[in-house]
Nucleic acid binder design. Structure first.
Length: 429
RNA sequence: CGGGGCGUAGCGCAGUCUGGUAGCGCAUCUGCUUUGGGUGCAGAGGGUCGGCGGUUCGAAUCCGCCCGCCCCGACCA
């Protein structure tokens, strides 16, 4: 992509309304633009990151055996009356009437919806286990939306729903998601700490929330240092050990009863980005989602639900990965992998070298953002550092004479003078 | 919802207390200049001062009502 043809409304000054670093950087880099309180437009740069985060969620869900569907944003109120949540949910739910005066709502979550799908098609324990997920926009009319996309009213969520015949099966499904979540966040360059949590309005009896570590996080968390070096690579992961490791938010942490020896107990700040629940038959029973067991008896299905705040993650990743110059994207979610910075493009040699390298990068399938404008060098460097692309390749008169370009890492600042060939080789390796 | 703050050009702000018909920086456009860390000079365009109503000869400024946004608190992916 050429900067001269791209839409990337970068701001030189901090917008007045943004307090926390991720919100400020998302506005300054032109990733998002506010539409109303807690509701945002995703501009090209932000949308690219959002899609990458979404893709990692999708891949890890599929790896864990979940199957993707897409449920609507608008739901009939009748489902929620069946489950009993229509009255219980309160003002956070956006209620709508259509032209026939039918009661509808903009979905804050999809338990009822997925149960309706399930109950119409699944009748036997032989069809289980089943895990259906989707990645869809939610609306919760928060009392106080804030911090940009970190607590929006409209937000993108990955939500999965597991169905099992019995408790043992439901527990296995829960544990599978537990591991999938750790893998998901790790792939985004985050350290996630799962902790036992209150179940809240989703209901149920077992629940973990996943907090990712960031110095600017909202809550204080205590955790076993073992979380920082978990081995999640193999297919067989010791789930029992993972779920037994200690972690707690400050409010629930009791130093006197903490099982972790002081030298292994860590204290940090965290941001909640995911939450998993086991809730048994809370929805299946009232909504009549039952299956026939091997004994010929019909029983309500055992369920769990598993949410990840996809749009919130974009903000959370920035909270965890930035410096005084701007964002420092982990490679897995960076909007572009390489920033090609052309200096002195009015000079024929520089121009030819930059254009040639750009063509070759594109041909090699690299995601490259090529600054082909005639801005001053300082402005180009500052912008690329602000938007945080992991690799910078600088083509300028200094190297052009001996046929080299500069390769730089955004994260460390380390740089090397290399031939265009070896830069290509390094980036495509 | 309680508490605090803000709304003036695309962005950041001054002007409001003490009423006299709107200004600065950045950005934008034109020309020249400069080119490895947000160049310099000259010129130009751009504003129903959030909205409605009131007071006044006269309102960005005073009064009333409304709308929107941000921050703190209780709640959430």
């Amino acid at each position: 992509m050429r900067v001269s043809r791209y839409f990337m409304p970068v701001l030189k000054e901090d917008p007045a309304e943004a307090e926390i670093v991720s919100h400020r950087l998302m506005l300054r880099t032109g990733m998002i633009q506010q539409a109303a309180a807690g509701i945002y437009n995703w501009l090209p740069l932000g949308f690219r990151v959002l899609r990458k985060v979404e893709r990692i969620c999708r891949e890890e869900m599929e790896r864990a055996g979940a199957i993707e569907i897409l449920m609507p944003t608008i739901q009939p109120a009748s489902w929620w009356k069946e489950s009993g949540r229509y009255e219980a949910y309160g003002k956070e739910m956006l209620r709508i009437r259509d032209r026939h005066d039918r009661e509808m709502l903009y979905g804050p979550t999809n338990e009822e919806n997925v149960v309706d799908i399930f109950r119409r098609h699944v009748k036997s324990y032989r069809q289980l286990p089943l895990n259906l997920f989707h990645i869809q926009w939610k609306f919760r009319d928060e009392i106080r939306p804030r911090f940009g996309v970190m607590r929006g009213r409209e937000f993108l969520m990955k939500d999965a729903y597991s169905f099992d015949y019995d408790y043992e099966g439901a527990r296995r499904s829960y544990e599978t998601m537990f591991v999938a979540y750790l893998r998901t966040f790790r792939r985004m360059g985050l350290v996630a700490i799962p902790m036992l949590a209150e179940s809240g309005p989703i209901g149920g009896s077992m629940s973990h929330e996943f907090q990712i570590l960031a110095a600017t996080g909202e809550s204080v968390v205590y955790y076993d240092a073992a979380f920082e070096e978990l081995d999640l690579t193999g297919e067989e992961v010791d789930v029992a050990r993972l779920t037994s490791l200690y972690a707690a938010v400050e409010e629930r942490h009791d130093p006197a009863r903490c099982p972790v020896p002081p030298e292994r107990l860590k204290k940090a700040r965290g941001i909640e980005v995911g939450h998993i629940f086991y809730f048994g038959t809370k929805y299946s029973a009232p909504m009549g989602a039952t299956v026939m067991g091997p004994d010929g008896r019909e029983v309500p299905v055992e369920m769990g639900s598993y949410g990840i705040g996809v749009s919130r993650l974009v903000g959370a990743i920035i909270e965890a990965h930035h410096d005084e110059k701007g964002i420092v994207w982990p490679e897995s979610v960076a909007p572009f992998r390489v920033a090609l910075i052309g200096l002195r493009l009015d000079d024929a040699d520089c121009r030819r070298m930059a254009e040639e390298l750009y063509e070759r990068m594109c041909a090699a399938g690299l995601e490259v953002l090529y600054d082909d404008t005639d801005e001053r060098p300082g402005a180009k460097f500052a912008t690329m550092e602000l938007i945080g692309i992991p690799w910078q390749v600088v083509v300028g008169p200094r190297g052009a004479r001996q046929g080299t370009v500069e390769l730089r890492r955004r994260r460390t600042g380390e740089s090397a003078e290399l031939s265009p060939e070896s830069v290509l080789a390094r980036l495509t390796a």
